[in-house]
Nucleic acid binder design. Structure first.
Lengths: 342, 342
DNA sequence: GCGGGAAATGGTAGCGCTACCAAATTGGCG
DNA sequence: CGCCAATTTGGTAGCGCTACCATTTCCCGC
């Protein structure tokens, strides 16, 4: 059973082995695998039989080298543990699992420099498409994206100036909607609590500010932010700070649900009535918000769908029919719940 | 400025361009990049200058093809959104970010068949190492892992029969410790609530059962499980079911923290006193458990560290010094909190 | 001064696949 | 019946890199 094996490779079957066994040329095997309609049905069957018998799997490296194009989607997100990006990534994986495309996932840790480095690395692979989170790339990153020679989808946000395509929603509008809701519910001293103030959180804050100023309620002392990574425990601490700073606080808009949950728990602990004494609004609408007691008002965002749409647009562009709508706004939804039902 | 570019490639600089510019042979450039100590300092400097000037980045596909070994870690996890695996994956990414290795991440969706398929795909890339979650691979998957020709690390669990190496802890012991803690705290009608009963949850259940039987407290009606994916809202529903089934329930061990949180919220909603009427223990110890009100007792697991250790062991094996300890048990820690402080 | 070995460098021949073009075969139509 | 075009198949020449071996250079010790 000692097969003759090539000098270097690990002895795995190659396209030449399949071709020999099927009695055809190597190139015909290649075609049968990639564009079956261009090969007669009979040869196709023979080739398939040989493939099955040998357990042949094409070498993606050789394929990428020969075709100057890897079947890889490069995906860049700022965090892997943040549920929001995990959902986007899940949508991407689910949409790509049935395709021949692999995924190269990079974690930028919210760093522009790291993003540049990763784009450099990804670019060297000649990916089939790039999906990046956010619209605030550094000039260098933007240049890398523009010269990548493949479809690029910026996700999570929409903005006026896409590198190529965009899928997301307006964080500014989301922040404004959340804040207006609190105002309409009758809250007046409404604080903003935001951790890890990335560009999207900044825009949510801008939306908050716009709503508050329009209502003549804005006061800089109501705003509490930190660059620290967001967590439930941080939400609790920040809420205590905010309350110490402004004891008359009667509502909070949190830049995400983790923070909101921390606020809710602290209210319980300090016997602060929600929504009577304090109204709470979160952002993203994680599953737990509707289950919390009291349930927490939040801005529902369509993270999974963003991932799916990004892939769909990229695939369309690869196939040659670039979607005419280059900027897709998936919007958001204000979920009114007990935490603001005064 | 029209550079002469090769017929196919996208006109990016190749190793030959660098070699020409530096006035050396291509192979010397290759060596300077991979094993600098084997090239004289002078040539190294010249080469580095040429690399910088041209912006040369090696093509990983060509490299993989020529060396029959890709600088890729294949990573297989059952879920991307479950915080537990997200943390493991984060540990892996952080440990590998400074290395030349890329990561190929696959999502098995808790399916053995999908795992086999992905291992097949990953195998075709000749990865430098494979990291897979769990120890219950199908026989076919196991065979694929054994014949992968690279270091393999099974993570999350420890067991008697590693394919190669293992990093994790005993879920059975964890389940037992959680249950014994409830028993010691004076609870008697202690339920088990478990969603998505994967093999690890099954072993936590076995640990629960062992502890309960040893105390003469086991009753099958106390066990409530479902194959449905875990979530906070599901935890709430399952707790209501459990309570309907056994109204005298006075404690619950949940197979993870999402479920525990759902139970806690339902207790608030139904005005059930925690820990007085019901004691709650979770599993994994997410950040929020210590912030919850009341704070929730949980089994702290070292997910991030598992990811880091797995990479460290794999890198050591690649470098030729395979760690003598092939099975690393990182243990767990019972965090006693208010939810069981009767 | 010379042989021998270590260190540094280069040439050649692929790795497994596909782009490009050529050749062979078939079919339609005037 | 013959010509042209469409369809199907194959050969050749790389893609960009590294393994393997050859060559050159330099230094040491006797």
């Amino acid at each position: 059973m000692t097969k003759p094996r090539s000098r270097r490779g690990g002895g795995r079957p190659t396209i030449a082995d399949v071709a020999r066994k099927a009695g055809v040329g190597a190139i015909t095997v290649s075609r049968a695998l990639r564009e079956p309609e261009r090969v007669s049905e009979e040869l196709r069957r023979q080739i398939q039989a040989a493939v099955d018998e040998l357990g042949y799997v094409p070498d993606p490296n050789a394929r990428a080298l020969a075709s100057a194009r890897a079947e890889v989607f490069g995906v860049l997100v700022p965090s892997l543990t943040n549920n929001v990006f995990a959902e986007v990534v899940r949508g991407i994986y689910d949409s790509l699992s049935a395709s021949p495309f692999r995924i190269q996932l990079g974690n930028t840790h919210y760093s522009g420099l790291e993003e540049e480095r990763l784009l450099q690395v990804f670019g060297s692979q000649r990916p089939a498409a790039l999906i990046v989170a956010g619209i605030d790339q550094t000039p260098a990153s933007r240049k890398l994206l523009e010269s990548a020679g493949c479809p690029v989808v910026q996700v999570m946000e929409t903005g006026p100036d896409p590198v190529d395509m965009m899928v997301g929603f307006s964080h500014l509008d989301g922040g404004r909607a959340a804040s207006e809701h609190l105002i309409e519910a009758g809250y007046r001293r409404i604080g903003f609590i935001g951790a890890r103030m990335d560009p999207r959180s900044q825009r949510r804050l801008a939306g908050y500010r716009a709503a508050m100023e329009a209502a003549g309620l804005f006061d800089p002392r109501l705003v509490t932010t930190t660059p620290v990574l967001s967590s439930v425990s941080l939400g609790r601490e920040m809420f205590r700070d905010a309350l110490a700073k402004v004891p008359t606080l009667d509502g909070v808009f949190c830049n995400n649900d983790d923070i909101a949950l921390g606020v809710l728990f602290e209210c319980h602990r300090a016997s602060i009535a929600v929504p009577k004494t304090i109204g709470i609004v979160g952002f993203n609408d994680l599953d737990m918000m509707q289950v919390a007691f009291p349930s927490v008002t939040s801005i529902r965002t369509h993270r999974y769908e963003i991932g799916r749409r990004a892939v769909a647009m990229a695939l369309a562009a690869i196939a040659g029919n670039r979607p005419e709508q280059r900027i897709v706004d998936l919007g958001f939804e204000l979920k009114r719940r007990e935490s603001t039902a005064r």
